[in-house]
Design a binder for these strands. Structure first.
Length: 311
RNA sequence: GGUGCCAUAGCCAAGUGGUAAGGCAAAGGUCUGCAACACCUCUAUCACCAGUUCAAAUCUGGUUGGCACCU
């Protein structure tokens, strides 16, 4: 049992409804690979699937932590492994569905996030330096990483330094070996895509719908429960912009436009990510127009890979 | 009809004689513990015509378009 189906695509492309039908079709259960849907109480802004929409299909890794908690790939990876084996034990097929490419990659290639805990003290210490100083420090211990990470990207420079500090191994070496890994799964990696302009239109429209559904109220509730700027949950698109509005820094109209823009930019970045992934099967909605056609295409591919028995 | 002001990339916008800043958008890319993050790359000959000058987006004249005020 090492079959794995991945269904992803840019935000607002229509993954959710397709994933439910697919799960029914192939006797699967769904694992969400979404860095924001893991949070409870963040439903509207993350376009989280509703209970009734699940239609009896079990979902993993949705609503698992409080918005005040930290979350990251390493934790995701641990939890996913458990979810997958649980699904296998039922004789079902795991379907990973969600837009966080990084999380999908971590599972698919079984990337090793060594046991080290995040060293808050060391990070705080590093935070006191300027970008250039940090970059120079990195250059001394790991020239390769220093070359590939621009000094301006302070976040990544810090991670590379932290990794070296904790393990004594160069981050660049670690990355290289991880990158050469073959996937332990017999997988099919589907990326649902659509005409760019149509996608952007749908994103804009969806933001308006979110506002109608009460996104502002949702953000207010989070704030009342102690969620603050700087927490991972507040990195979510729609949340930080509305928080800015609530704090009186922008107008509501400006905030909404910004949410739309950020969402479009995000969709574009997701596509860049998927383009780089190997063995991706693209499902172009301008070719496979109906969900029925998309499903047939998926099933055909799953049969070819032996994930689903041929008829 | 008259007078004045303005006209720089899709948008905003510097530059007032020496060979086109910057921001946003769009597009492409990086990514292996915050990834809905963070970061990188990248687009013009200055409304049009003529003139002055070694040299003009920058000065002069005209044309077109816009804005303001006046009759």
């Amino acid at each position: 049992m090492n079959n794995l189906v991945i269904l992803t695509g840019p935000t607002a492309v229509g993954k959710t409804s397709l994933s439910i039908n697919l799960a029914k079709e192939i006797n699967g259960e769904i694992i969400s690979a979404d860095s924001m849907q893991v949070y409870k109480k963040m439903d509207i802004g993350t376009a989280k699937i509703k209970k009734e929409e699940m239609d009896g299909i079990k979902h993993y890794l949705i609503d698992i932590i409080e918005p005040t908690e930290d979350f990251h790939v390493a934790r995701f990876k641990e939890l996913v492994v458990d979810a997958i084996s649980e699904i296998y034990s039922k004789g079902k097929i795991p379907i990973i569905c969600g837009g966080t490419g990084f999380y999908i990659q971590a599972v698919l290639y079984d990337i090793d996030f060594s046991e080290n805990e995040i060293d808050k003290n060391y990070r705080a210490y590093l935070d006191g330096f300027t970008s250039d100083e940090l970059h120079n420090m990195l250059k001394k211990v790991d020239d390769e990483s220093a070359t590939s990470i621009p000094a301006a990207n302070k976040k990544r420079v810090i991670r590379a330094l932290e990794y070296y500090h904790q393990t004594g191994e160069k981050f660049s070496v670690h990355n290289l070996t991880q990158r050469q890994k073959k996937s332990p799964y017999n997988f099919a990696y589907f990326v649902l895509n659509d005409d760019r302009q149509l996608l952007y239109n749908r994103i804009d429209k969806r933001v308006d719908i979110m506002m109608e559904q009460g996104l502002l109220k949702e953000v207010e509730n989070l704030v009342n429960q102690g969620v603050k700027k700087g927490m991972t949950a507040m990195d979510g698109i729609g949340y930080k912009e509305l928080l800015d509005y609530l704090e009186g820094n922008t107008t509501l109209e400006y905030a909404i436009d910004l949410i739309k823009k950020k969402s479009r930019n995000y969709a574009k970045r997701q596509l860049t990510w998927f383009r780089r992934e190997e063995d991706v099967i693209w499902i172009d909605k301008s070719i496979y127009k109906s969900e029925k056609e998309q499903m047939d295409f998926i099933i055909t591919n799953l049969k070819e890979k032996g994930i689903v028995k041929g008829v």
